[in-house]
Every structure is written in structure tokens, then in C-alpha cells.
Design a protein around this nucleic acid. Structure first.
Lengths: 343, 343
DNA sequence: GTGAAAGCGCTAACAC
DNA sequence: GTGTTAGCGCTTTCAC
């Protein structure tokens, strides 16, 4: 096989020869940061030659020389989870515009796989990481010695920049909405406590209830073992089996809410007539369900963009505009048919 | 910021010194393909030294020397389309196990963006491409001079290996199902004709109808301008405005089917009592709709795996097991509530 | 403002 | 079987 296009590529030396200058000069002329060391006229000649010959710099050679790869890696637990694609997409846009290439790696929700991936990518020389897999206790993050930004999930194990949604605000909106509809007995099915989202949202729920002067009974806040429909079913079943009756259920995320909805249906309890349900994340299609799910919408693309910007700033050692340590982006409540006035 | 871990990495020369051999020898000892040129004893010493020092080869330097990057790129039109994540995930697994790193790039459905991305990735030295964005007439594919595999969509512009689902079989299953339920007036809303899937599925529909001895009237097969719900709405409206009444609608994909369902609802036509609807792709959640959508399920992960295997074989110049030119993977019909007996 | 020369870390062609 | 040497394409001192 002859892949001519890739093999006989035009290199800097060719451009320099065509422009009648030394390769070093051509390099300076082409690099925006060193362009001012070169005369206007030379710059023009080099640029024209490069353009005419279709010169594309060899990233590998540059990387070897500069010890920079212009590769950024993004680590997600499972790209088939619709939460992540919008983040990935937005991050890639920012990164690629800045000359970086995004490497995506899917850990399949497995810590060992994740560690392998990270090591492979470090060997590759990835300039930085955007990490969407953080656990609350996460030894890997503590060891990490490269620029990195956490997205969606935060950690207690390291002091890394974090970009997330304003989860407290989201939960507050949801509780406020239910209270405004007359609900007072509101159960919360939390996400797993080894994630920051599981912890943060649960804490926010307690605080919001307290803000409305509503007491929280035992069993009213239940942790789910995972952010899955199955875990939601289990938790909902436990809720239904308990003494206390709730007029509304706030779920740690949409998948848990699905579990609640299906368990309510199984038990012959109507939503929203008998019980209102609210989810979190606003996954695609949840507005097409019957009833359509009221849920908290996260600015996923904004999060991806922001994380990429912060990472770029970290890598290049510049200041990003805006705060770095902890960026909380605004959320909104998508009010739909799964919530109604308290029975 | 001191990122010690990455900066002062141990290099081949260090290993060679520690093992008391020349770097060239160390290189040979470490490379499986050249290991047999080195004595057992030396190999052992080098391996031990490398292990002890935690040597990780510098992929950039190797790439510069060997003109190989061990980077494979995957190009998708829109990663937020749930069709693609399973493919990406499966491809990444195969690739990463083979020592390759997957670069994902999202073209935002834009040919110009796509061209830019491909050029950037060529400059990066990507060893090969998995392309999910092929159009039926696609000049970019004709120019491509690197190993590449098409996935999901085929093209007329180049003779590249193609991995897809058996679309004809899928359409046939759908038509057979409807005919078995007593339907004879079945409309087809095709995808755009600049995609192989748009063309292939439409051709398959005509053939399947012919196989049942069912005539196809003018306006019974309508192309949509895009694979979107909006395009589905438009096409469905045109269908309803026509003289002929249909008892079933087969949609070019699930999004088009959504458009049909919403337009039927708007017109007060019940699905499935009055009209049956079938989609294509089996997107997540379509089983949770009311009514749940009958649709053709594609083996997305298998497609991703297969495409990656073929690409690896292309890159390494070896034979993959199985055919290369055109792999059609089996589909199945997920029968759900949106189809019923003809009225 | 430009040229010369060295070198990033690795591998492959050539000696011995 | 191992050492030597050269060089992948680029950037970046150092001269002038």
C-alpha cells in the first residue's frame, strides 16, 4: 500500500527553501509567538510559501522538541451515558480550536481500567486531563502529576480545579417547586455516597427542607447503590414498604426517577395524581415519557467548554478568565407533567 | 507548577546505562520484534533495569523515528446522537488493547469542519481513520490517503472497507411484520438520499413490498431532508395531506418516527389503533414511550469492534479474520406497542 | 533580523 | 550479538 499523501509530506525545510530563508527563520515566521523576531517581508514570503506548498507542521517532531504533545485526554466512565457526550463535544471544540487533539477514553466504570488508561496516556505524553470519573475517595487523583480538571464529579482526595453544575441550586429549585405545589412529605432517593453528586445533592435536599421548616423523618432520605434504574426500583420499593406515605419523590438523577416511576406504576399509584416525581439531569427524551419528567437541567455543554478552558490555562500556565478553583454553572428546573398539586 | 512525574522521565539511555549496554541494544531487547537479535542474558538484564527504573517508552520520539503514532482517529457527525457512543466505546476497547490511542472528533455534521479535523489529524500522523460521517458523494473520502474504514454509512466516492448493519434485512423484517399484521398500505419515510442508509433502506423497502406483491403508489415513499424529528413532522404532514390513507408508516430512523408519532397525535390519529409506526435504530428509551416504538435494532457495539479490527489489520498490513470489503452485521426487529393489526 | 548548529529520544542500517 | 552512527522534523539557543 502506498499512502503517498502521508509519506512525502512537505516539511519545514521545503518551505524555507522555497522562501529562500533558513529553516530556523521559517520556523520563527510561522510561529505566532516568535513572529515579531522576523521582518514583515520575510514573514510574508514564508507564509506564502507555506500556503502554496500546503505545509502542515509535523506535530510529532514539534512534540519531541518541545516536550509537549498538544494532546488532551478526557476520561469518562461510560460514553453511552447521555450525560457525557455534550460535555465531550463542547470540550473538543474548545481544545481543537486551540490546536489540541482530544483523546477520549471510556473506563467502563472500572477503577483498574481507568488506572491503565491514565498510565497509557501519560506515556503518550498527554498534556492534561479532563476527568469525569472522580470518586469521593480516589487515590488515583491524589497521585496525578499532570494538569487536570475535574468535571461533573468532585473529589475529597485532591485539590484539583472542578467544573460542575450548581447542584444545590438545582435541588433547591426542585424542593421549592414541590413545596409551592403543596407537598410537605417529600422523599429523596440519593445517589451513591462515593460520588460528590450523591453527597452534595443529599446535603442540599436536607438544607432546602430545613429552609421550608419541613422535618425529615428516618427513611425519608435513602441512598441508592448506583445511579441506575434498577437501584431506583429497589429504593422506591423500600419507600413504599415504609410506614410513612410521601406525596412526592425527588430522585438523585433521572435513571433513579425511572425506577421510581416504574415501581409506582407497578403498585398502581398514579403519577402525578397520587405522587409527584422529579429527576435530575434532564436526559434526552425524558420529555417524551408519559408523564413527561420534571427534572433539573444541567448546562452540560457549558461545563465541557469551561473545563477545557481551565485545562488550557493550566497547561499553558496562563490565567483563564473567570475563577479556577471551583466553577459552578447555573441550572434550571424543567417543569413537566410528572409533578402536580399535592393530593 | 512542578509536574515532576512527567518531566524527569527515565529514558532509554538511562536503562541502557543501568544494564551496562548500548542504547541500541537496549532498544532491541525491549522491542518484541527485535528481541531475538539479542542474547537471552542481555535481554533479561535490560528488562530488569527497565522494570526497576519504571521505564516508559516515549511515544513521541518513537513516532518521529518510525513514522507511526499508534493513534487512530474516529470521526463522528455528532457524538450526542446516541447511535454513536456504543460504536465509539467498542472501537476504543479493541484499539486500546492493541496499544492504540483513540482520538475522537465530532464534525458537528459539517463538511468543512470535517475536512479541517481530518487535516489536523493527518498532521498529527494518525495511523488510520474510522469514519462515521460518509456521504454518498464525498470528495474528502476520495482524497484520503491513509488506512480508513467506513462505519454505518457507506459511500460511492471511494472503495473503502465498510462495516454496517444489514439494512436490507432490517427493512424486510419491518415490512414482513406489518404485512403479517394485515397491513397493505404502508408508507415509507426515507432518510436523505446523500447517505447510503437513506438510499439503501428505501431500495430495500421497495424490494420488500414487491416481494409481497404490494404495489407502491406515487407519494408512498417520501424522502426526508434529514434524519430529524422536524423532518419527520414535515414528511408526515405531507403524507396526511395526500389522497391515499395508509395503515402503517415505516420511518427511515427513530427520529423521523418521533416526528410521525407527534404529527399523528396532533391530527387525533391513534397509534397503533389507526396507524402503526415502525422506526429504525432502537435508540435508548424508545421502549419507554407511549406507545413504545417498534423498531429495528442495530448491533452498534459489534460494528465498532469490527471496524476497529479491520482498521488494525489495514494499518499493520495483516489479514483480519473475516471479510474486509463489506461487513454486514445482523439486525433484529424489536416488536413493541406502536404496531398492531391493520384497522 | 537571520543563519548556524545542536539536540529532543528513539530506532534502523551498518560495522565488527 | 552488540556497538556505532545517523537522522526522523522541528525549535531554540547562540552568534553575527
Amino acid at each position: 500500500m502506498a499512502y503517498a499523501g502521508i509519506m512525502q509530506r512537505v516539511k519545514l525545510a521545503d518551505v524555507a527553501r522555497a522562501a529562500g530563508v533558513h529553516p530556523g527563520t521559517a520556523s520563527r515566521a510561522l510561529n505566532p509567538l516568535t513572529r515579531d523576531q522576523v521582518s514583515r517581508e520575510t514573514t510574508r514570503r514564508v507564509a506564502r510559501a507555506a500556503d502554496r506548498l500546503g505545509y502542515v507542521p509535523n506535530a510529532t517532531a514539534r512534540g519531541l522538541r518541545t516536550a509537549r504533545t498538544y494532546i488532551a485526554a478526557m476520561i469518562v466512565p461510560d460514553i453511552t451515558n447521555p450525560l457525557f457526550p455534550p460535555m465531550v463535544r463542547a470540550a473538543e471544540q474548545v481544545l481543537s480550536r486551540a490546536g489540541y487533539t482530544l483523546v477520549l477514553t471510556d473506563t467502563d466504570n472500572d477503577a483498574a481500567t481507568e488506572r491503565r488508561q491514565v498510565e497509557q496516556l501519560r506515556a503518550r505524553g498527554a498534556d492534561g486531563f479532563i476527568i469525569a470519573t472522580a470518586r469521593w475517595e480516589d487515590p488515583l487523583l491524589a497521585e496525578l502529576a499532570v494538569p487536570a480538571v475535574l468535571i461533573n464529579r468532585n473529589t475529597a482526595s485532591a485539590d484539583l480545579p472542578y467544573v460542575g453544575a450548581d447542584e444545590r441550586a438545582g435541588i433547591t429549585l426542585a424542593v421549592d417547586h414541590l413545596v409551592a405545589l403543596g407537598h410537605r412529605r417529600i422523599a429523596y432517593l440519593a445517589g451513591p455516597p462515593d460520588t460528590s453528586t450523591g453527597r452534595e445533592r443529599a446535603a442540599a435536599f436536607r438544607q432546602a427542607m430545613r429552609g421550608h421548616g419541613l422535618p425529615i423523618a428516618r427513611g425519608q432520605v435513602r441512598p441508592c447503590t448506583a445511579y441506575t434504574e434498577a437501584a431506583g426500583v429497589t429504593a422506591a420499593r423500600a419507600l413504599l414498604a415504609a410506614d410513612r406515605a410521601y406525596s412526592a419523590v425527588l430522585a438523585g438523577n433521572d435513571l433513579i426517577a425511572f425506577g421510581v416511576l416504574s415501581e409506582l406504576a407497578r403498585a398502581g399509584i398514579d403519577c402525578p395524581a397520587d405522587v409527584s416525581v422529579i429527576g435530575f439531569n434532564d436526559l434526552p427524551m425524558v420529555d417524551k415519557l408519559t408523564p413527561p419528567l420534571t427534572t433539573v437541567r444541567l448546562p452540560l455543554a457549558d461545563m465541557g467548554r469551561r473545563a477545557a478552558q481551565i485545562l488550557l490555562a493550566e497547561i499553558e500556565g496562563t490565567e483563564p478568565d473567570g475563577p479556577v478553583g471551583r466553577s459552578l454553572l447555573g441550572v434550571e428546573l424543567a417543569v413537566r407533567g410528572s409533578t402536580g398539586r399535592a393530593a
